[in-house]
Amino acid sequence: MASLSSRPRKRRGSGVSQWELAWRRLKMNKAALAGLVIVGVIGVMALLDRLIALYPPNCNVGTNPNCPNPGPKPDVWAIGIPPSWSFPFGTNLAGQDVYSQIVYGARAAFLVGIGATAIALAIATLIGLVAGYFGGWVDNVLMRLTEVVLVLPFFLILLVFLRILFTLSPGASGGLLVIILVIGAFSWPGPARIIRGEVLRVREFEYIVASRQIGASGFRILFRHLFPNTLHIIIVLSTLQIAGSILTEAAVSFLGFGDPNSITWGRQLADASEAVKQAWWAGLAPGIFITLLVMGFNLLGNGLRDALDPRLRE
């Protein structure tokens, strides 16, 4: 190449870490901030659930407004009341206060979203890193496995699993956990491929090649060098996966295969759809909240992707 020293090394802006830089970029992205706010607000809602709800969970307001358990058949007057001051979102056909139910449902949404994503991305990261770094037959085998799982109609199989489970033990309290596990167990192939792609891109970086030559062991390189470099992509994939998992749970519950013992927005949507003509507000609220939360995560994910883009680092 040409002259050596007429190209002084570029020095990064004084002492700003790449994470701070990304945070700054994120802050400038209005849409991403909106997403963050939405997720934050609903998150707070989920945390404070009993504090901000008006009635206890699954309580029929017609019977005893302070009822701790689902009561007997609701009084007729409590069924399907349109939104009003005492019932901000109205009541549904089971006589429950929709607003309170929404508040309680937020928790399930976050649990499913984050839980399933944690599992899926953990598996995906492991497989992606190993396949991308070691290559060869390891890569081949793992990628074939990925393809097989990817081809399977995950949603259909999920339905079957859930149905079998709830048939065999209808009173089980771990229903939500099963949903989380199954969604997580089937959602890893897509992200795994993407992470592997990123590993392939990153592993040719000089400092990784250099540490290989110094004799650093495979695992050391994997965790100390490769993993941090794929972190940006893992974060983005995670946010988007959370959005997807919430939608999946909603779909599953809508079809009636969800956990009958948990309060989820999906189930509320399903219940409300049976008599949507009489009390359409009971369906509007969960539908809107699902959309809002998913949108929030999507906005956040897109914003993070732009903010963390390694090629824009300077």
Partner: peptide, 13 residues
């Protein structure tokens, strides 16, 4: 964006 976030069941109904 709304279209990707809305549950199909909700939109359909």
């Amino acid at each position: 964006l709304v279209g990707t976030s809305i549950p199909i069941s909700f939109m359909g109904i």
